Simulated assay, not measured.
Amino acid sequence: MPRFAVVATAAAALVVVTGTTATAAPEGTEFGIQSTSTGQFLSGDWDGDGDDTPGLYDYDSGTWFLKNSNEAGDPDLIFTFGNAPEEGWAIVGDWDGDGDDTIGLLRGGTWLLRNTNDTGVADLTFQYGDDDESGLPVTGDWDGDGDDTPGLVRDNVWFLRNANSTGNANTAFVYGDQNEVGIPVTGDWDGDGDDTQGLVRVGNWLLRNDTTTGPADIAFAYGDAFPRHWPVPGDWDDNDTDTPGVAEPHEDGTVRWFLRDENSSGPGTTVFDFPGAEQ
């Protein structure tokens, strides 16, 4: 499963935001799309071992850098998928339900999904969204069937689809304020097998356990305000529940990850640099 901006693993995570607005063609150096000069921050279960680990996507070169453990060190996987430069959104999910998270791109309203973490053509291509789509992509296992599927967040309205194919949203609801400035995140917050929505506003995580309109079921502070800290949730300890993480980019190109194993305020359970100063 995944997450985003913004994406669980049971979900892979991926978060893409623009601070206050979305754009259909992210710039590799633009704050707010989970990308700086360092790249877009991601998380996913790249090797299918049950826990989520970090990744980076470089929009300038279309290169993915994925790590299979939550510790400092070199990437375990480096490959290209996308153009150089890439103008779509980088996304993550378990598209085929085989237990590992893999890569994808959203260009306009066209979703290009690949079932292996390597260079090649998309295994699945379909339209979901407008040609000039300005909503933010999210991914997740909305119906608990084991595979991740697309979603779009347009302001505070969430449009979720249960199949990786062209068609209408299966679920649509309001979550957040009009002109929402929070960062959308998705994950399996309660470990029940399906992914649901959340928002991160100035370091405050507002997580809901149902894909419906309503208040947050879980609320806590973790991390500082964007852009110092970029929210990236994941199942860091292989307990089938997604919890918060933040990535802190530094001017020297290093990124420090603060991962917490509970949906509550407190210090990071695991802290490490990826990439490090020598990478």
Rank of each mutant, 00 (worst) to 15 (best):
N164M: 07
N164L: 10
S165F: 14
S165M: 15
T166H: 09
N168Y: 06
N168T: 10
N168V: 13
A169L: 06
A169S: 14
N170P: 00
N170C: 00
T171L: 15
T171D: 11
A172E: 14
A172G: 05
F173E: 05
F173V: 10
V174T: 15
Y175M: 00
Y175K: 00
Y175L: 00
Y175I: 01
G176W: 03
G176R: 08
D177C: 08
D177A: 13
Q178F: 14
N179K: 13
N179S: 14
E180I: 02
E180K: 03
V181A: 15
V181G: 12
G182Y: 10
I183G: 11
I183V: 15
P184C: 09
V185C: 05
V185G: 02
V185F: 06
T186W: 06
D188N: 14
D188T: 10
D188Y: 05
W189M: 10
W189K: 11
D190Y: 08
D190M: 09
G191L: 13
D192V: 14
D195I: 08
T196N: 03
Q197I: 14
Q197L: 13
G198Y: 01
G198C: 02
G198Q: 00
G198L: 06
L199N: 12
R201L: 08
V202N: 01
V202T: 01
V202M: 00
G203Q: 04
G203L: 06
N204P: 02
L207H: 01
L207M: 04
R208H: 11
R208V: 10
R208P: 06
R208I: 13
N209H: 01
T212M: 05
T212H: 01
G214S: 14
G214H: 09
G214M: 11
P215A: 12
P215Y: 05
P215Q: 08
P215I: 03
D217G: 01
I218W: 08
I218S: 11
A219C: 04
F220I: 04
F220L: 07
F220E: 01
Y222R: 05
G223K: 06
D224S: 09
D224F: 03
D224E: 04
A225I: 06
A225V: 11
A225C: 08
F226G: 00
F226W: 11
P227V: 14
P227K: 13
P227Q: 12
R228Q: 13
H229Y: 05
W230I: 15
W230C: 03
P231G: 03
P233E: 04
G234Q: 03
G234T: 10
G234I: 04
G234L: 02
D235T: 01
D235E: 04
D235K: 02
D235P: 02
W236G: 07
W236I: 13
D237E: 03
D238M: 10
D238A: 15
D238F: 09
D238C: 13
D240L: 15
T241E: 01
T241I: 10
T241N: 01
T241Y: 01
T243A: 05
T243R: 05
P244D: 14
G245Y: 05
V246H: 02
P249N: 07
P249M: 08
P249Y: 07
E251A: 15
D252A: 10
D252C: 09
G253M: 12
G253S: 12
T254M: 12
T254D: 03
T254F: 10
R256L: 09
W257Y: 12
F258K: 05
F258Q: 06
F258M: 07
F258W: 12
